[in-house]
Design a protein around this nucleic acid. Structure first.
Lengths: 213, 213
DNA sequence: TAGATTGTTAATCGATTAACAATC
DNA sequence: TAGATTGTTAATCGATTAACAATC
C-alpha cells in the first residue's frame, strides 16, 4: 500500500485513533472533522490531519471524515483485517491472564498454543488449550505457521527462547520479559516492560511533589 | 532536587539505564564510560551524557562514571528510595497476575490491598491478602494513605472508579483499562494499553512484508 | 604532563504546529 | 456561489547528535 517509512510516533497513535473512531461508530456518529476529533482526543487537529495523510487522503474537503470508513481504513493499516497466529510462552500468572483476555481474538490474533517448561503445568487447560512442554515449541512454531510469540517468561531464559523462535520463523515477539532481545532486524519486537512503566509513574508522582504548586 | 522540567523522553529512558547499571553492578563492574555504555545499550554516548546531565554531573572527566553510584542516583531520581502504598482494583486474571509479581515490592511498591466488585471473589486470598469489596475501596485509600492504584477493571467502570480514587487522595494511577482517564493535572496516570501495543506489533510485522528486502 | 572522558554548547534532524490554498 | 474543512507547505519547536573546551 505504502512505501515511505512512517515514523513510529505516528504508528503509536494509530491504535488510539482506532479506539476513538470505534467508539464514535458505535455511538452512531457518521462524520467528524479533524477539529471535533481534536476536541475529543486532546491532540491538535493539525496533527490528526498530518497523521492521516501519511496514508493518503481519507477525508473530504468541506465535509470532514466518514467515521466508519476511517475506522475501517485505520484497521487495515494496522493489519487487523488479517489474522495472526499467536502462541504464549510461559504459563505463569501473566501468561494465563493474557491467554484469557478474549478480546485479542476479536482483532484477528488467534490463540494457537501455550507452552511452559514446568511439567506440573503440562496438560492443564487454559481457554480450552492444553499447556504444552517447552520442547514442543520449536516444531509447533515451524509447522503451524506461528507469526507472533508472547514472551511471559523470566528474563533469564528469554534471550535463548527468542533465538529459537527466530530460528523457526517467528515474525514478531511481544516481549514481557524484562530484558532487551537481540534479534535480527527483520523480526519485530514490541516490549512491554511493566516495571519500567511503574518506575516512570513513581518518578512523575514524586516529581509533582517537588514542584511549586 | 530539581526544578527544570525534564522531558518525558528522558524519564522514559531512565528505567532502562537503571536496569543495565544494576546488571553491571551485579557483574562487579566498577566504572563505565558513556562510550562503553553506548556500545552495550545501543544508544549514542552523546545521548547518555545529555540524559545524565539533566540531573547534574554524575561522572568524572577522564574517568567515566562509577557504576554503583550512578545506579543509586538514578534509583533516587526514580523515587525508588522511598516506598509507595499500592492497591489493585480488579481481581481478574491481570489483577491477580500483577499482585503475584513480587518484584515490585523489592522496588518499594508495597502491595496493600486488592478490591473487586464480584462478591464471589471476596475473602479469597491473593499473596496472603483478602480480596475486598469495591465498596470499601474509598475509605481504604483515604485512611491507609494509598499513593498508587492499579486499575485492572473493564473500561466501562474505569472512569467512575478513577474519579473516586482522585476524590480520596490517590496520587497516581497505573491504568490497564482500555480507556483514557480524565483526571486533574496533579494526578499522574501511566497507561498500559496492551491491545494498542499488540496492534503496533501487528503493524510492524505486516509493514515489513510490504517493504522491499 | 599527557590522555581520557565528561559536561556543555552548537548543529542537525525530526516531529509538531500553524497557515493557507485547494476543493468539496 | 459561499462556507467549511481538508491536504499540504512552511514555520516552529524540541530532541538528538556532533563537537570541543574543561578538567580529572
Amino acid at each position: 500500500m505504502e512505501n515511505r517509512e512512517i515514523s513510529q510516533a505516528v504508528i503509536g497513535r494509530l491504535p488510539r485513533y482506532f479506539r476513538y473512531l470505534g467508539e464514535l461508530k458505535d455511538e452512531g456518529v457518521e462524520r467528524i472533522s479533524s477539529q471535533e476529533l481534536s476536541d475529543i482526543m486532546q491532540v491538535t487537529a493539525s496533527q490528526i490531519r498530518q497523521d492521516f495523510n501519511n496514508f493518503g487522503g481519507f477525508g473530504q474537503q468541506g465535509y470532514g471524515y466518514k467515521v466508519e470508513y476511517l475506522y475501517e481504513e485505520i484497521g487495515k493499516i494496522l493489519g487487523l483485517d488479517r489474522t495472526h497466529n499467536l502462541i504464549i510462552i510461559g504459563a505463569g500468572n501473566l501468561g494465563q491472564a493474557l491467554a484469557n483476555y478474549m478480546n485479542f481474538e476479536r482483532r484477528g490474533f488467534l490463540f494457537k498454543g501455550i507452552f511452559d517448561k514446568n511439567p506440573a503445568l503440562w496438560g492443564r487447560k487454559i481457554r480450552n488449550m492444553e499447556i504444552k512442554p517447552m520442547e514442543e515449541m520449536e516444531a509447533f512454531v515451524r509447522e503451524k505457521g506461528i507469526d507472533i510469540a508472547v514472551l511471559t517468561i523470566p528474563k533469564g531464559s528469554a534471550v535463548e527462547v527468542a533465538e529459537k523462535l527466530v530460528a523457526n520463523g517467528i515474525r514478531g515477539i511481544w516481549n514481557f520479559a524484562h530484558v532487551d532481545l537481540p534479534v535480527p532486524d527483520k523480526i519485530q519486537v514490541e516490549n512491554v516492560h511493566l516495571s519500567d512503566s511503574l518506575m516512570k509513574l513513581a518518578y512523575n508522582i514524586n516529581q509533582y511533589e517537588h514542584r511549586e504548586h
